[in-house]
């Protein structure tokens, strides 16, 4: 029990003193996770939309594949991306490994399937009558798409929230592609893994408490936006 009290007090001290190293860790975490989520949303939502509303041969296979990719371990992604961007890899000349860019590449690969499958589910649930009504009222393709997206917005926002939660909490990609370099690519999760490795459990838990608080705030914000768009 003392352990938790110690950790909690330590985290309070860290927050109260506005530890600059900690601020940087939080900043890197949020920056990388938000950028990854934005990019994945920009790719995944249109992709999911197209898969959901069009009929084509192999549609089931695509959905099954996406569902499989949901279970892709972060270390596998880390390893694959590593092989491409390592100094000896094809893209080695760009010197991407152990940078924030590398982390974003890996994280986008991780969550594009999340955004896509959630979007497909959300759109498939929309009654096809919306689509037909819109079309009979003279909506063109884009207007029809907007109607469908509008009806499916809850599911789509949920997909983005889930994707953000996935990247801010993942450690495998950040560690393998970011390299946990202090001040550059050290995120909350890799910092926690490090403190654990060092045997500084108190500091690790303190960071964990901060991570949970930040995730909570982010989720409250996102839920707020989701709620406000509801009619």
């Amino acid at each position: 029990m003392d352990f938790f009290v110690d950790s909690f007090l330590s985290s309070l001290i860290l927050i109260r003193t506005v530890d600059p190293a900690l601020l940087n860790i939080v900043y890197v975490s949020l920056k990388v996770s938000l950028l990854s989520t934005l990019i994945a949303g920009a790719v995944g939502i249109p992709f999911g939309f197209v898969v959901a509303v069009t009929e084509f041969a192999g549609k089931r296979a695509v959905i099954t594949l996406l569902n499989t990719l949901l279970a892709l371990p972060t270390v596998v992604i880390g390893l694959f991306v590593y092989m491409f961007i390592s100094r000896r890899g094809i893209f080695g000349v760009f010197d991407l490994l152990y940078t924030q860019k590398a982390m974003i590449i890996g994280q986008v690969i991780l969550i594009v399937p999340v955004v896509t499958t959630f979007t497909i589910t959300a759109i498939s649930r929309i009654d096809t009558r919306y689509r037909r009504t819109a079309m009979t009222l003279g909506a063109d393709r884009i207007q029809t798409a907007m109607v469908i997206l509008r009806e499916a917005r809850f599911g789509i926002v949920a997909s983005v929230v889930a994707a953000f939660g996935r990247v801010i909490s993942e450690v495998g990609i950040s560690m393998m592609l970011g390299g946990n370099a202090k001040g550059f690519t050290r995120t909350m999760t890799t910092a926690m893994a490090l403190e654990y490795d060092k045997g500084e459990f108190v500091l690790a838990v303190a960071l964990g408490i901060i991570l949970m608080s930040i995730s909570l705030v982010m989720n409250i914000l996102l839920n707020y936006f989701q709620g406000r768009t509801a009619v």
Binding site: D2, V5, D6, S7, L9, S10, I13, L14, T17, D19, A21, E200, V202, L203, A206
Partner: peptide
């Protein structure tokens, strides 16, 4: 020197 204050067994400790 980078110092962090943590609490261990109820006492404040500098690392």
């Amino acid at each position: 020197k980078e110092t962090r204050t943590i609490v261990l067994e109820g006492k404040e400790l500098k690392v």
